[in-house]
Amino acid sequence: MKRLILVRHGKSSWENNLPDEKRPLKKRAYHDAEVVLKTFKEFQSGNLTLWSSPAVRANTTAQLFKEELEIPEDRFTIKKELYTFDENQLLAIINSCPANIEKLMVFGHNPAMTGLVNQLGDKALDNLPTTGLCVIDFESDSWKNIKNGKTLLQLFPKNLR
């Protein structure tokens, strides 16, 4: 059994004229992460491995989750390949996850995140919102061939405020 948790980065700021990968989170993103984490912590148990895009907005969101969920440093990795907007590239990176990892939480970007939720899960959605979280389980012993997953949980900040 494999569990994939996809989290879109928090709401980012466009105020400063920064390159896309350097844009920081807006103040609202911190509150959004807080409300999503409050509910997710009631659901989550066991060891999680976190992978994040290196983009500031994704990495900052991942750090908020890492701290609140008390994830040890050795279970947190920034992967430059996760700075992608393509769902097939995102899936290829997830497919490379070692088989000994049972629960993987990935922080990334749209439209790749929404596309992958719809490709792998059984509950389609129009858009995975910023700081939106989706949990999908797979009857598989390997990340290489995950498909036809069961969507267990979708948490969106606007539904939790």
Score class of each variant (00 low, 15 high):
29 A>Q: 01
30 Y>S: 11
30 Y>F: 13
31 H>K: 15
31 H>P: 06
32 D>E: 01
34 E>R: 13
36 V>S: 05
36 V>P: 05
36 V>Y: 01
38 K>N: 13
40 F>W: 09
40 F>A: 06
41 K>Y: 08
41 K>A: 09
41 K>M: 11
41 K>P: 07
41 K>W: 06
41 K>T: 10
43 F>N: 12
44 Q>T: 13
44 Q>N: 14
46 G>V: 00
46 G>I: 05
46 G>A: 05
47 N>R: 14
47 N>L: 15
48 L>P: 03
49 T>S: 07
49 T>Y: 04
49 T>A: 12
50 L>I: 11
51 W>L: 07
51 W>S: 02
51 W>V: 00
53 S>I: 00
56 V>I: 13
56 V>G: 03
56 V>C: 15
57 R>P: 01
57 R>L: 02
58 A>P: 00
59 N>A: 15
59 N>K: 15
61 T>H: 02
61 T>S: 01
62 A>P: 00
62 A>I: 00
63 Q>C: 10
64 L>R: 02
64 L>F: 10
65 F>Y: 08
66 K>Q: 05
67 E>L: 08
68 E>G: 04
68 E>R: 14
69 L>W: 08
70 E>Y: 10
71 I>V: 00
72 P>T: 04
72 P>E: 00
72 P>V: 00
75 R>H: 10
78 I>A: 03
79 K>M: 13
79 K>V: 10
80 K>Q: 12
83 Y>P: 04
84 T>I: 06
84 T>Q: 03
85 F>T: 14
85 F>K: 11
86 D>I: 06
87 E>F: 14
89 Q>I: 15
90 L>V: 02
93 I>W: 12
93 I>P: 05
94 I>L: 03
94 I>M: 02
95 N>Y: 15
95 N>P: 10
96 S>A: 15
96 S>H: 11
99 A>I: 14
99 A>K: 11
99 A>P: 13
99 A>Y: 11
100 N>C: 12
101 I>A: 13
101 I>D: 04
102 E>S: 15
105 M>S: 05
106 V>G: 06
106 V>D: 03
107 F>S: 06
108 G>A: 09
109 H>L: 01
110 N>P: 05
111 P>N: 09
112 A>S: 11
114 T>Y: 09
115 G>L: 07
116 L>I: 14
117 V>L: 14
117 V>T: 13
117 V>H: 09
117 V>N: 09
117 V>Q: 10
118 N>M: 11
119 Q>F: 12
120 L>R: 02
120 L>A: 04
121 G>W: 03
121 G>K: 04
121 G>F: 01
122 D>A: 01
123 K>S: 14
123 K>D: 11
123 K>N: 13
123 K>M: 11
124 A>P: 15
125 L>P: 04
127 N>M: 08
129 P>I: 09
129 P>H: 05
129 P>T: 12
132 G>I: 03
133 L>T: 03
133 L>V: 01
133 L>I: 07
134 C>G: 02
134 C>K: 00
139 E>T: 08
139 E>C: 10
140 S>R: 07
142 S>K: 06
142 S>F: 04
143 W>C: 02
143 W>F: 03
145 N>A: 14
146 I>F: 03
148 N>T: 07
148 N>H: 07
149 G>S: 05
149 G>R: 05
149 G>V: 03
150 K>F: 09
153 L>S: 01
153 L>Q: 05
154 Q>D: 08
154 Q>E: 13
155 L>H: 02
155 L>M: 02
